[in-house]
Structures are given as C-alpha cells and as structure tokens.
Design a protein around this nucleic acid. Structure first.
Lengths: 209, 209
DNA sequence: TGAAAAATACCTAAAAACCAGTAGAAAAAA
DNA sequence: TTTTTTCTACTGGTTTTTAGGTATTTTTCA
C-alpha cells in the first residue's frame, strides 16, 4: 500500500498548518499540497493524482459542496473528508450527498482524524463523535425535507429500483402503464429528479431503498 | 404508536412456538398470525395489514428470498426480519438485497431480537452480533462478486446517478455520446442490470455510490 | 516490445422514458 | 359532509435509452 497522496484545502492558514503538523508523523499518508481556495485545488487536481482531500466547506471562491461534486466526478476514488466548523445538520448531510466520505469538526482530535481516514479508506462514511451526535437527532425541518411518498409511490419506487419498466410494473399491479408513468413523474417531481437514475439515487440517499 | 402487527413464518413448529413465547410479553407488538409456509403468509397478507414479518429462509414452498421481494413490493413499509440458521455471507446479503430489514440467527437472545426490531422500526438494517461478525469479514469470493470497474466507468456511473444523460456526460467529458453509451452498456453488463434504474440501485448496494 | 485491457467511436432501429397538461373516481381527512 | 389527497387514466409529442453489432486507438504492464 502506497502512502495516501493528501491535500488540504482551507482558507485559514492556521488550520492548514495545524492539520499539516498533526498529520506529519502519519506514515500512511503524505501531504502533497495545501491550498487556500477551490480553484487552486482543481488546477492541481487536473494534473496530479490525489487520494485524500481534507476540505473546508466555506471557501473564498468555489464552495466545498461544489468541489466535492467536481472532485468526485473526476475521480470517484478520491476520498474527501470535510473538516469544518459548521454544525448544521443540513450542511453535513449535503456534503455527504455531494460525495464526501466523512465529516469532522475542526476541534477533532488527531485520533478521530486518524480513525476517520482509516474508515474512509475502507469505504465507509465516517463522522467524528460530535458530528455523529448532531446527525443522530433528526429535526422536524429535516423531516420536512424528505419527500412524503404515498404507499403506491413507495411501491413503484421500489419496483423501479429492481429494473422493472413501467409496463412491467403496470402488469404486475394490474394498472395501466400510463398510471405508472404518472406515479413515476410524481416521484421524480417530489425528489426533484431529472430521470430514474437520479430518482433511485435520491431514494437511496433518503434511505428509502 | 399502535402495536406492531406481527406474523411468524417458519416451517419448524418449535421455532414458531419459541418465538411466540419469547415475544408474548412484548408490549409493542402483537402476534397476529403464524404460518408454516410462504403461500399461507401471502394469502393472509393479501387481506390483512402486517407491520412485521419474522421470516425463515428455507421454507417448503416459496423461498424466503422470493417472499421478501413479494412482500416488499406489496407493502414497502412492512418490516422483514430474517430469522435463520444460515451463516453464509452470500445468503445474508441476498436477503438484504431482496428487501429484508435485518438478519438474526435462531440462537439469538430475546434482547437481540428486541433490539433488532427496534432498529428496524427506526428504518435501519440490523444484524445480530454473530451475523455482524460474519458479514464484516469479506471473503475473496465475495470480492470477486463486486464488479471491477475502470476509472471511466466509475466516473460515468457517478454522473449517471446525478441524473445526467449520456449527452450531458459526453459534453462534460468531451466525449462522443456514443462512447458514453458504450461505457454505460458495459456498466450494465457488469452489474447484470437491465436499465439505469437497476444499475444505480446496484451501485448503491455495492457501496460504490 | 507485444499482448491484453481500457477507452474511444460508429450504425440502426425498436423500446422505453420523459414532458406537459388534464381530469374523474375513490379514499382519507377535516 | 365537504375538502383534500391519492390513485387512476388519457392525449400527443419529443428525447433518451437500450440492444444488436463492429472496430480503431491508447494505455498498461509483463
């Protein structure tokens, strides 16, 4: 196993130095670059392989959310760990939805950081303790964000995820395929999805599948 | 919160009695039926609401796997907990893929059972301790089952999950849409998926998304 | 350096999905 | 018993996907 080629992206020099120092003695990773904004990261990223990105959410130019997406599109295997001060549940969830592999607060200990990296390498999503607490208490507002599906819609979502076509489903449920299409459309609207692919992805992210 | 309308499906009368007795003092659930095969369950299920199914994998008629699917298609909210003796990883994973919400071995304690039900009600998938151990040590054979994707394929899978069309992706990556189509086809072949919906679902189940 | 794997690109045609709107019947909630 | 929601179904059209192929050019790596 090679050392993880690691970069740090944060607009606070102190944080960069802090992380750098903390991680300087880790023998499973190597810090190959530090950047104070998104553009710098992207330009480096275009010509160099990166295994691990420690990323702040608030950056002067491109937001951390957007960066997550861009990085993951370019290189889905690159691990992104968010290191941020934001404690809002919605922000945490959003970063994960955009492809981040974990979320830490800036006051995390080296141990937590180490552990998160290890988990992320294994392919798991990992939160520091405090973050874990935040996300494990759901809010009403949060719930409002999850589309409320009718029984039929859930059923059809479920069958879609199994690769069934509208006609298949219509036959199995003794419906017109036009009806199934309508449900499907309503589902896509509720999830703000452009097509089935996104619908299924959203369903999974919402833990409905 | 009403009591969970619970049914037990197992072809061993002893197991049925055992579970019944174990759960008789639980005040959050009520056993409304016990069946010794799949057909019985289905016929009951067609005319009665069921919140929780305790299901054996090996049944004389319809397999537990198939039952999972059928039940979930009819009523995605119904919780299915597998109570089985099978310790093969592949079987465990398959039941979960077919929609089961948890997997217990028959030697589980009442406590574990209770806990599993509670977790499943929360929407989590839950395994008893021993099962947890089994599934947390991946085998080589297991790994072979996970499609090996090329970088490009992963990238395109990722973008598909965001609802992008082949053309969208082609534009973003400066490719011909025909190329993207080919990748997409190869992806579907590797995942044995019939269409994007199933592809994305499989990607999620394989933790690639 | 040579073979294998990956990435790229093309053709055709049918099938399926998607868009935008409407609307009646049934069931659930007020 | 209204009102609202859910489920149902339709028209008519456009776009995208999918299924059969084939085939060249890069990379990668032994």
């Amino acid at each position: 196993m090679n050392k993880l080629r690691t970069v740090i992206v944060d607009d606070h020099p102190i944080v960069i130095e802090g992380l750098k120092t903390l991680l300087s003695n880790e023998d499973n990773l190597e810090i190959v670059g530090t950047f104070s904004n998104g553009a710098e990261l992207l330009s480096y990223f275009n010509s160099n392989p990166v295994d691990l990105v420690l990323l702040d959410v608030t950056l002067p130019d491109i937001g951390g959310m957007e960066l997550c997406k861009l990085v993951k599109e370019e290189s889905p295997d690159t691990i992104i760990l968010i290191v941020s001060n934001h404690t809002e549940r919605s922000i945490i969830m959003q970063t994960i939805q955009n492809g981040a592999n974990g979320y830490l607060l800036k006051n995390s200990s080296l141990d937590e950081l180490r552990q998160c990296i290890a988990e992320a390498v294994k392919g798991n999503i990992c939160y520091s303790k405090e973050v874990m607490e935040i996300i494990s208490r759901p809010t009403k507002n949060e719930l409002r964000g999850i589309p409320q599906l009718t029984r039929r819609e859930k059923q059809i979502l479920y069958m879609l995820a199994q690769g069934k076509t509208s006609q298949n489903i219509a036959q199995e449920l003794f419906l017109s395929s036009l009806t199934v299409d309508t449900h499907r459309r309503n589902l896509m609207q509720k999830f703000e999805a452009k097509n089935v692919a996104e619908l299924i992805a959203a369903g999974h992210q919402q833990q409905l599948l």
